[in-house]
Design a binder for these strands. Structure first.
Lengths: 339, 339
DNA sequence: TTGTATGCGTTATCAT
DNA sequence: ATGATAACGCATACAA
């Protein structure tokens, strides 16, 4: 069943049928009704390939991420799907892992599918050197590239991020202000995002006159996701025994740290305060519940999609190259400020 | 840059170029080399729309799920993406929520995209009545439908499940055998999967001569995902105070139950044992760590994709309509069996 | 308002 | 082994 069949059944030309399908104004009500009736009757749906061939678009965007089962990314994908679908776009998902050469290869593949745009989810896509980022810049030569939680300055690349630097700076400052003396920053990667967080941590330390900030940072590389909590717990023995507050770059790390603190008999938050990052439902699973930082992921995703739609509608000039949101501190049982 | 351009540059016809692209045997090595060189030089990639138009396939499968940010589903999507991509297929993601009419609508939409197959992820897709399932059966009229974690008997529908009934039956039996007297089953939905679990629970109770099984079942409907743990904890006061073991249909529920038990001063597992379901990394986040049931999700996904590939290769007759895996008990701190 | 004719870029059929 | 050409199904420019 194609447009020619409908044309025959209705007695109108394919052009008219096409016009009806696409909601053109210049079709009489009577004609429209008749055509629609026949379309309905035979359950006809236009062939998207033929349409794509002519228009050179399938209303589809490619989503690239390192690992769609990661909580942060899974949530991002969920929101992106929601907003893209509302806007009439489909989403092709592509998980690349962390290997740069795979990213390059998959980017090529996804572009060869003639997607209308590419959305890069997560801070793992923006690398240190221009050379490593070249494939993104090149991709942006053919379609808009949106980055969620990463900054890359290049034509046709649009970034939406949460201010990780500020968030960590402020939570650290808050802890120090409330009397903590020996903070520890716990992280597990050196992505763009992680660097910003470390910077925030160091800035706060500096302000409070704490020297040798690097000695207050513990970086762990859990071998895999299962067992991560206990891996972190065990690695914590390397930390300064005077540590009285732990600021983690991720909730899961914080829970490992919490386990460590409790296992050595420390009271939380009295002896050791712990904060996480991302504010996942995980935070409710431990005891005491985890204070964390909400990074406004839904807002990032919504903004990214709405910017993209603006770009599609040819208003690219009015779309900001970077949009920065502020995080929000969510206090729970592993911290106590003030008094 | 299209196939005509390459044709001109090489001096060969489009037919020959096409043959080279598609790896046809009947091309001389010399010709192949020359054509490939030119393709490489100009960075030509075939237009997928034109190809799709002719072949009526884009090597793409549609994935439908209720909520891609759900842990179970997010993991499933991750595995499906991995195996599909290895097989040379793309994946279009579509989240439908729980509303039946939305599912029907999205199924139509996804079929109109001419996907080569549809994979339904999660037990929420198979309903009680034929009428409600009609849209799935109908979809299977045009493409193969694979169901992960659900059973629907219809032509061209292939199901892969884990034996939830057996898993819950066995864990319950194990708890009763180890001396527990008053078990409680905790669940939060009435999906196909939940029903199987309840059945397993009841079967075990019956075998141990425990009457009124319904009084040992608590169903909760957390309003939303954030706050779920505490919602469950609070609802637990409705449970029989004699309860000495809690079997939850999901890890998150189990953690809520664990919180309840600990908050009322019970010792876990001595006074109250708790088991979860899914064996997510969540299990490590609480104290004691949660005993849970691993449902072999990766195996389900791999099998589903490999079956699909067999169907595509026209060996549909040799593909089982249903494949059932067994779960695996993962013991942690919230239970202690035997001695 | 409606119809005719053509292009979109492949693949496949049939020649050669 | 290679080439010419007809589909594939739609949208659209141009005509009427």
């Amino acid at each position: 069943m194609n447009i020619y069949d409908i044309s025959k059944k209705t007695g109108f030309s394919t052009a008219t049928v096409s016009r009806v399908i696409n909601g053109s104004a210049s079709v009489s009500e009577k004609t429209r009704a008749k055509v629609l009736a026949v379309i309905e009757e035979y359950g006809y749906t236009p062939n998207v390939f033929a349409r794509g061939l002519g228009l050179n678009t399938m209303k589809t965007v490619g989503i690239m991420c390192s690992d769609s089962s990661d909580r942060y990314i899974a949530k991002a994908i969920y929101f992106l799907e929601e907003y893209l679908r509302k806007a009439g776009y489909d989403l092709i998902l592509c998980c690349t892992g962390r290997d740069h050469s795979v990213k390059v290869k998959q980017m090529k593949l996804i572009l060869s599918k003639r997607v209308d745009a590419v959305i890069l989810v997560g801070s793992s896509y923006v690398e240190e050197t221009d050379e490593l980022n070249a494939y993104i810049v090149e991709a942006a030569g053919s379609v808009p590239v949106m980055i969620i939680n990463g900054i890359l300055n290049a034509p046709n690349v649009y970034c939406t991020v949460c201010d990780d630097h500020l968030a960590i700076y402020e939570i650290t400052r808050k802890l120090l202000e409330s009397g903590r003396k020996s903070p520890l920053f716990l992280c597990n990667s050196s992505s763009y995002s992680a660097k910003k967080k470390i910077r925030g941590f160091k800035d706060a330390l500096e302000q409070f006159g704490i020297d040798h900030p690097d000695e207050h940072i513990l970086t762990v590389y859990p071998p895999n996701k299962t067992g991560m909590v206990n891996y972190v717990r065990d690695r914590m023995i390397e930390a300064d025994p005077d540590t009285d507050c732990i600021i983690a770059a991720e909730d899961m790390l914080a829970i490992g740290a919490l386990k460590f603190a409790l296992s050595k008999g420390a009271r939380v938050p009295e002896d050791i305060a712990v904060t996480g990052y991302n504010n996942f439902d995980l935070c409710e699973c431990c005891e005491p519940e985890l204070t964390s930082i909400d990074n406004k992921l839904e807002a990032l995703c919504e903004k990214s999609v709405s910017s993209l739609m603006q770009i599609f509608s040819d208003n690219a000039r009015s779309v900001p190259k970077q949009t920065v949101y502020s995080c929000e501190l969510v206090e729970r049982g592993t911290t106590c400020f003030g008094k």
